[in-house]
Amino acid sequence: MIVRKQGDRFVLFRQHDHALVSADFALKLKEIGRFHPSAVYAIAMHDVGWRLLDREVLWNEEEDRPYSFMDYPLGPKLPAYKAGIDRVAAEDAYAGCLCSMHYASFFEGVSDPAAVRFREEELERQERLKAGMKSEERDGLNRDLRLLKFCDHLSLFVCLNEPGQNRFPWFREGMDYFGRRLLPVWESPRQLRFSPNPFREPFTVTIPYRVVNAAREPEEEGQLSIDVVC
């Protein structure tokens, strides 16, 4: 779950919904044609393992707020990561390898035994998947992983910031797009552009959300729509 605090309420976005919006961003990039065709599938499906976890809000009793994807307990989270990668890899080996690389990168330098084991198993999976690829596909994996992470950040920017604001620390200085620094600029609370503009045309992204209050009661459900302008 992606969690944005809003006064005494919490705005919640399901991870898989956010990933689908990541793919919406990818499809509108001017340069999308230079990436592997399976990259967009990987972007759209990279958080599919969260679907079961996000059916319910898991409450962080110590912090008195919902757990977010950033601090969700590893016990249920790691098997969900693995199941999601399994699903993607069964459909598309290249996309599965990208998702595996994405998740393995979260645990570089960690000491938790379960996280270390997860990373080691994913590195082994990547080698198996690469063995069935053409050399030019293997050469393109790191490029396409950067695309996945960039589009992931575009969607996270929309979810983690109040419309019209850029306060979440990850994005205050912009985002890296293959060596170029892209700055998000709000034209209004519902209109967003990036400078320099990486997109070929204006489009709208829409993501469902729900709101719970501090008493853990559901308050609202709706759709957040943002117009991306060029």
Score class of each variant (00 low, 15 high):
72 Y>A: 00
50 W>I: 14
74 L>V: 05
62 E>H: 06
22 S>T: 10
41 Y>F: 13
38 S>V: 05
51 R>C: 09
72 Y>H: 05
31 E>A: 14
58 L>P: 00
13 F>Q: 01
50 W>F: 12
29 L>T: 06
28 K>H: 15
33 G>W: 02
40 V>N: 07
65 R>S: 08
56 E>G: 05
72 Y>V: 01
75 G>K: 13
44 A>D: 11
73 P>R: 04
31 E>D: 12
57 V>Q: 11
75 G>S: 06
9 R>Y: 07
12 L>R: 09
37 P>I: 03
14 R>N: 15
35 F>Q: 11
45 M>R: 14
67 Y>W: 11
25 F>A: 06
44 A>W: 05
56 E>L: 07
65 R>V: 05
50 W>L: 13
33 G>T: 03
74 L>K: 03
8 D>Q: 11
71 D>S: 01
55 R>Y: 09
19 A>S: 15
64 D>C: 07
73 P>N: 02
70 M>P: 00
57 V>I: 15
14 R>G: 14
48 V>P: 03
26 A>Y: 06
75 G>D: 09
72 Y>S: 00
9 R>K: 08
46 H>C: 08
29 L>P: 07
21 V>E: 09
32 I>D: 03
40 V>A: 15
12 L>A: 09
10 F>D: 00
37 P>M: 04
30 K>I: 08
10 F>S: 00
43 I>F: 12
8 D>Y: 07
8 D>F: 07
54 D>N: 13
64 D>W: 10
27 L>I: 03
9 R>D: 14
18 H>G: 02
51 R>P: 00
18 H>I: 08
47 D>P: 09
53 L>W: 02
39 A>N: 04
27 L>Y: 05
8 D>W: 05
72 Y>R: 01
55 R>L: 15
29 L>V: 08
19 A>T: 03
36 H>F: 02
36 H>N: 15
20 L>P: 00
46 H>Y: 09
45 M>P: 03
74 L>Y: 11
22 S>H: 12
47 D>G: 11
30 K>P: 00
49 G>Y: 00
66 P>Y: 14
66 P>M: 06
60 N>R: 04
34 R>W: 03
39 A>C: 12
17 D>T: 06
30 K>F: 01
55 R>V: 13
54 D>A: 12
66 P>D: 06
59 W>Q: 01
17 D>Y: 12
44 A>K: 13
26 A>T: 12
39 A>V: 10
36 H>K: 09
41 Y>L: 13
55 R>H: 13
73 P>A: 03
14 R>L: 12
27 L>W: 07
19 A>P: 04
9 R>M: 07
39 A>T: 15
72 Y>K: 00
28 K>D: 10
19 A>E: 11
20 L>K: 14
68 S>H: 10
13 F>V: 03
29 L>R: 10
76 P>Y: 01
